[in-house]
Design a binder for these strands. Sequence first.
DNA 1: ACCTGTCAAGAGCACTGCTCTCGAATTGGA
DNA 2: TCCAATTCGAGAGCAGTGCTCTTGACAGGT
Lengths: 230, 230
Amino acid sequence: MVANSLRARVRAEMIDEIKAVARRHLTTDGANLSLRAVARDLGMASSAIYRYFPSRDDLLTTLILEAYVALGDAVEAADDAVDRDDLRERWFAGCRAARAWALANPAEYALLYGSPVPGYAAPDDTVEPAMRPPLTLIGIVRDGLAAGQLTPPPAADLPQPVRDDLADIAASLSPGMPAALLARGMAGWTQLFGLISFELFGRIKGGLPHRDDYFDHQIALMADLVGLPR
Amino acid sequence: MVANSLRARVRAEMIDEIKAVARRHLTTDGANLSLRAVARDLGMASSAIYRYFPSRDDLLTTLILEAYVALGDAVEAADDAVDRDDLRERWFAGCRAARAWALANPAEYALLYGSPVPGYAAPDDTVEPAMRPPLTLIGIVRDGLAAGQLTPPPAADLPQPVRDDLADIAASLSPGMPAALLARGMAGWTQLFGLISFELFGRIKGGLPHRDDYFDHQIALMADLVGLPR
DNA sequence: ACCTGTCAAGAGCACTGCTCTCGAATTGGA
DNA sequence: TCCAATTCGAGAGCAGTGCTCTTGACAGGT
């Protein structure tokens, strides 16, 4: 038993080491990291890696999954650290945490939210972790509604078809949330993603030195749109 | 001279053919298209392609540049087709045109707005075409301000540093535009990019059958945020 | 008719993901 | 304790990639 767990422990350490080196390569090579290069860095034959990961895509998938979890943890932790009743500050904390994580791990963010790798199809295990960051934001809105701090926008603004669609989503995600409010919450998430992507993928770099302040302001705009009290 | 132009014409046709085949491969292979595969499709040796494009990245750059131009043309044409005074309809037309182009050319959209290719650096020629779609949207806002149909948001909402940054941008882009209004126009562009990316990169597919209506509503929200009259 | 510039093709280099085989090491049970 | 079974690393090899260089054929202008 001890022997078995020894082997298992060595194996687990090996897997961790491979993932660590792969993550490091990710920052320079992006999505097209080289198994052989990782193997070289580890001083082993490239074929040995296949003892631990059945394919390169599989290694990428585990990195993606762990990245989703890390991002979700960061956003939720930031939200949890704020007074539950201070909805606006919770909104800011969650958004800022997502941006901070993305700036600290740009390659992994690109893996999660960049263009999908052509041949690659995300397995089902990734959809639940992928939902956590947006669900955290939606949860803030839901709490605001429950606490009466937030009045839902008029449903008349919504065309009937999209109202029905969103009502279905709300029923499974956040029961009782009005469709029009859910739409605005999703707009906030979309905006957050767009802001981070633009900043990270560098289509905005020039002429906007105070990026933190700009980010905060744009996030504040969406907080207003959602209806979070100032 | 006739002979020379004949040679030039044949060469131009060859370049067009290579680009056409490469574009076709782009839809299936994404950013990592294979020069050799393109050459195979054209019935020529892979080395022959290098007579027309110095490198694979160079071919990609050409495709990217032409894609930017195509997208910019589509957005501007849609805007131009609407009565200049109907600002809200112009906003909708521009945004819908961008989405329609992206849905019709998903691979090229991913090339433009997806995660950047690791080793690849966008040349300066691309920054001007890349600015056209957002500038079109900002132009609509500018026209609305000039026509008095639109009252700028209070500048007090903007922190001083970002107000200065945006004022600099406004000065070179759209003189006279208040910083707070520019911020909201940029929010609209960010939202448009986020909406299209989410729809295209498939993180939303399930449970939202009426995508056109959803898109229209989210765009309408941003039109309201900018202050375009209904 | 003779250069000259252009072009396609082939061989070759270094790299990639991946498979298979073959010894060596480790493990669990008799 | 010893043996069979399992696990593991290394190497060779296949098919594919971008790219370079050389070679030979062709067309253009003089």
